[in-house]
C-alpha cells in the first residue's frame, strides 16, 4: 500500500499576539476565527492531515476558512505559530520541516514542493518571459546549464499547451488560464514529489477550467505526484480527489473519502456546503 509522503500535525497560524481570553485555545472565545477582545485572527487551529504517495487530497471550505494558509505555511511563505510537518526527504521524516534552517527550507521549497498560487501575481514574475520564470525556479534548485534549462522549460510549456511562439512573452500578456498553466509548468520544473495547488481553476471560464483540470489529472496519472488540492469548488474536488478534508474557521471539521463527504456529509457546515450545490 501507499506510503505517507507528508504528515502535518496540529498546524496553527495566528495573526496577532493573542490575549488571556483567546490564547487558551477555547473556541467559544472566538467569533468565527477572530478574537473580539484583542483582534487576533486564528487562521489555523490544530490542522492535521496525511498525504499519501500519488494521492490527491482535496481541501474545501468557505472563503477565509484557512485553506491558503495551510499551503502557505508548508511552502514557508508564512511562519506557522505552532505545529509540525514531516516529509521523508528531510531527516527521514523524524524532524519537522519547520525546525529547519533557511538553507534547508530553500532546499525543500525547490526540490520537494511545487506550488501554484491562487493569485498568479504571487507565483510568477509578470514582466519576465515565461521561459525565464521557469528557469528561475530551476536556477534556484542549482541548475546552471542554460541550454538544458531552456529545453526543459520549452518541454514543460508545450506540455501545458503554451504555443511555441508565445513562450518568450511575459505572463502579464496572458489570459488567466494561460497564467495558471505557466504556474503549473513552473511548479513541475524540478519534478517535485508534492504539488500544492491553490484554486487552480478559480476565476477561469468553464472551457478553460476543463483544460486545466484535464492537465492536473494527466499529471497525476502520468507522474504519480501527490497533490494537496485547495478549492472551494466541490465539483473540482469530486473529479480529482480520492479523499477530502473540510475546513471551517481554521479547523478541520470533517474528513473522509470524497464521495462520502459529498453524499453523506455529517457536519452541519459540510451539509450546508454540499446542499447549496445541489
Amino acid at each position: 500500500m501507499n506510503k505517507i509522503v507528508l504528515q502535518v500535525k496540529e498546524l496553527g497560524k495566528r495573526f496577532g499576539e493573542g490575549c488571556p481570553r483567546c490564547s487558551g485555545g477555547d473556541p467559544t472565545a472566538l467569533e468565527r476565527n477572530y478574537c473580539p477582545a484583542c483582534g487576533t485572527v486564528y487562521a489555523l487551529s490544530d490542522v492535521s492531515l496525511d498525504l499519501f504517495e500519488s494521492e490527491v487530497l482535496g481541501i474545501v471550505g468557505e472563503s477565509g476558512s484557512g485553506k491558503s494558509t495551510v499551503l502557505n505555511c508548508l511552502y514557508f511563505d508564512l511562519e506557522p505559530s505552532g505545529g509540525e510537518a514531516f516529509i521523508a526527504q528531510y531527516k527521514n521524516g523524524n524532524e519537522s520541516i519547520f525546525s529547519g534552517s533557511g538553507q534547508t527550507r530553500r532546499y525543500i521549497r525547490n526540490h520537494v514542493f511545487g506550488k501554484v498560487y491562487q493569485n498568479p501575481v504571487l507565483g510568477l514574475k509578470m514582466k519576465f518571459s515565461s521561459l525565464a520564470n521557469i528557469a528561475e525556479k530551476m536556477i534556484a534548485a542549482g541548475n546552471r546549464n542554460v541550454g538544458a534549462m531552456e529545453n526543459r522549460a520549452r518541454e514543460l510549456l508545450t506540455h501545458v499547451s503554451i504555443p511555441h511562439h508565445r513562450m518568450k512573452e511575459a505572463p502579464a500578456n496572458f489570459s488567466g488560464g494561460m497564467q495558471q498553466r505557466v504556474q503549473i509548468a513552473k511548479a513541475l520544473s524540478n519534478n517535485p514529489p508534492i504539488l500544492l495547488l491553490d484554486e487552480v481553476t478559480t476565476g477561469l471560464d468553464l472551457s478553460v477550467q476543463a483544460r486545466v483540470l484535464d492537465l492536473v489529472k494527466q499529471i497525476q496519472r502520468e507522474l504519480s505526484i501527490s497533490m494537496l488540492l485547495v478549492s472551494h469548488d466541490l465539483g473540482v474536488v469530486r473529479m480529482l480527489a480520492d479523499r477530502t478534508i473540510v475546513m471551517l474557521n481554521g479547523r478541520v471539521v470533517e474528513r473522509g473519502l470524497t464521495d462520502q463527504i459529498l453524499e453523506d456529509p455529517q457536519h452541519p457546515y459540510t451539509q450546508e456546503l454540499v446542499y447549496s450545490l445541489l
Binding site: L213, D214, M239, R243
Partner: peptide, 24 residues
C-alpha cells in the same frame, strides 16, 4: 480510508446508472 481505496481499485466494483467522468 487507504484500505478502502485499495479495495475499490482492486477488489470491489460498483456500477450504477450514472457515469461520473472527468471531462476531456
Amino acid at each position: 480510508e487507504q484500505t478502502v481505496i485499495y479495495l475499490r481499485h482492486h477488489e470491489i466494483g460498483y456500477v450504477s446508472q450514472f457515469l461520473n467522468v472527468i471531462p476531456r
